[in-house]
């Protein structure tokens, strides 16, 4: 990987994440407990630990290219296990919100097939749309 120098000040990005999540990502010591605990990490291009590292470095553009926050199921396993007390689920929410609040969807409800919708219990649709649509 080539060295990328973040364009914006890293502090600005921390503050935004802190404002949205209430979490101080600088506390992370990169132990990797989150990645090891995550039931979805195998499907992430970048594990939770690495995602936090990108955030720590203020590399927001690179972070947005990852699918970490879009694969996260908000199960809070990482949050309850983090030895530094970071509620990672909230950090993931903050990263999702940075995109969703620009009126961008991760999934498109109107493109789902009738069969897919009819099979789902209603809570899947409610929860999925809340987490993955703007």
């Amino acid at each position: 990987m080539s060295v990328i120098i973040p364009k914006k000040s890293a502090d600005e990005f921390f503050e935004k994440i802190k404002e949205l999540s209430g979490q101080d990502i600088k506390l992370c010591m990169q132990c990797g407990t989150c990645s090891a605990s995550c039931p979805m990490s195998e499907h992430m291009k970048c594990t939770p630990r690495k995602a936090i590292h990108l955030a720590q470095l203020g590399m927001d553009e690179m972070l947005h290219e990852q699918n970490t926050c879009w694969v996260c199921a908000s199960c809070h396993t990482c949050s309850v296990r983090c030895p530094r007390g970071i509620d990672l689920a909230r950090v993931m929410e903050a990263v999702r919100q940075l995109t969703l609040r620009k009126n961008e969807n991760f999934i498109e409800p109107s493109k789902m097939t009738a069969e897919e919708i009819k099979n789902c219990p209603q809570i899947a649709l409610v929860a999925g749309f809340r987490k993955l649509t703007s």
């Binding site: 409800p109 109107s110 919708i117 009819k118 649709l125 749309f129 649509t133």
Partner: peptide, 12 residues
Amino acid sequence: DAVHALYPEVFR
């Protein structure tokens, strides 16, 4: 669920 399939946005 016919209504749900036509208007999934109801769950928003």
